[in-house]
Design a binder for these strands. Structure first.
Lengths: 186, 186
DNA sequence: TTGCAATACCTAAGACTCTTAGGTATGTTC
DNA sequence: GAACATACCTAAGAGTCTTAGGTATTGCAA
């Protein structure tokens, strides 16, 4: 029988695709192994088990999200930067629901995961600086922005917005509200 | 052997306490049965299984949260109402993390769960009316408020705010930002 | 009080998880 | 070509939820 030729990176990538396609709940070692053409115990040669796999997935997801928002922030300032970054954030989460769910799950005790999440936050701090916000003001600003965006995304994703009013308009108005709020805070 | 004397309400209440104490992840029929002094198959006489239990828990949680925020809204308007309602929202979630997680999990397909969640939303609409917001404006306002609050709560709960800057101040400033935003929207 | 009906609870068993232990065979390196 | 590293395997155990079917308790009715 030929080998599948797996390594940790390949396993994590397949897990990411499976989670995005089927939902994080359906990411099981059994399903992942079947997708990769091996038996589930074989995966333990590459990852430390399901918790370790989800941790790696979360780190990978943070890196992907950071790349997306950092790219959007390039060459922009203030409201322009905020809009571009938040749109990119939301679009990335929409395109990668399983990965995004691993971020939202949280690994507040794991240094590497904290560092990966910090990568996203640093882009937001750059946006705050372009507003002229520094020190604690910028921390409050980042927290408000993250809360609003993360809340909107998760509420939308789980079907929390039921009233038939255009969601895109709600999103735009929320981003505008954040923009005005940040201007007034400085 | 004497009977435990369970019924559906008692089972759901015990499940809520278990979820709040140990986390929603640790709410298993096995653990719940042990807590109640019965074997896990016995629970099927009272609830339809684990998914049904979580659904009932979510509905129960929405009702509890709605009571808390409705109470806070009584006799208040505008910023006064907003602050009281959002503080009560956050406090309820902090006191009942397991129950709150069941809400956040989402049951967008189940009519009864949607109706229960709507109860909370209606309190927010009352607050919007006190700001003078009607129609689509009020929908956008409710969505922005829910997003910010839900995002803040979940980010805090999972340890997403790592920078050593006072969280309470961040919360207050976010609520103030929402207040200013709603004033300017009308 | 006695008998019957409802049902609360049980054990047994199956299908599904993750995970560990230990064996086999493939690929690589000397 | 031989030895070694390791990718993958099977087997097995401890969990999970869930269904099927049996027992015994409870409450109601005669």
């Amino acid at each position: 029988m030929p080998r599948a030729g797996l390594d940790a990176e390949l396993v994590v990538r397949a897990a990411a695709e499976l989670a995005d396609a089927e939902g994080l709940d359906h990411l099981t070692l059994a399903a992942l192994a079947q997708r990769l053409g091996v038996r589930s115990p074989s995966l333990y040669a590459h990852v430390g088990g399901l918790p370790d796999l989800r941790l790696r997935l979360a780190i990978d997801a943070c890196d992907g999200l950071r790349d997306a928002v950092a790219d959007a922030a390039l060459g922009r300032t203030e409201g322009d930067a905020l809009r571009a970054v938040l749109d990119a954030y939301r679009e990335w989460a929409r395109a990668h629901p399983g990965r995004y769910a691993t971020i939202a799950h949280g690994f507040a005790d794991h240094p590497e995961a904290i560092a990966a999440a910090q990568g996203v936050v640093e882009v937001l701090f750059a946006v705050m600086r372009s507003y002229g916000l520094e020190g604690e003001d910028s921390v409050h600003g980042v927290r408000a922005v993250r809360s609003a965006v993360h809340g909107f995304i998760t509420l939308q994703e789980r079907g929390g917005f039921q009233i038939p009013v255009d969601l895109e308009q709600s999103w735009e108005r929320m981003v505008e509200m954040l923009d005005r709020g940040l201007r007034q805070d400085r």
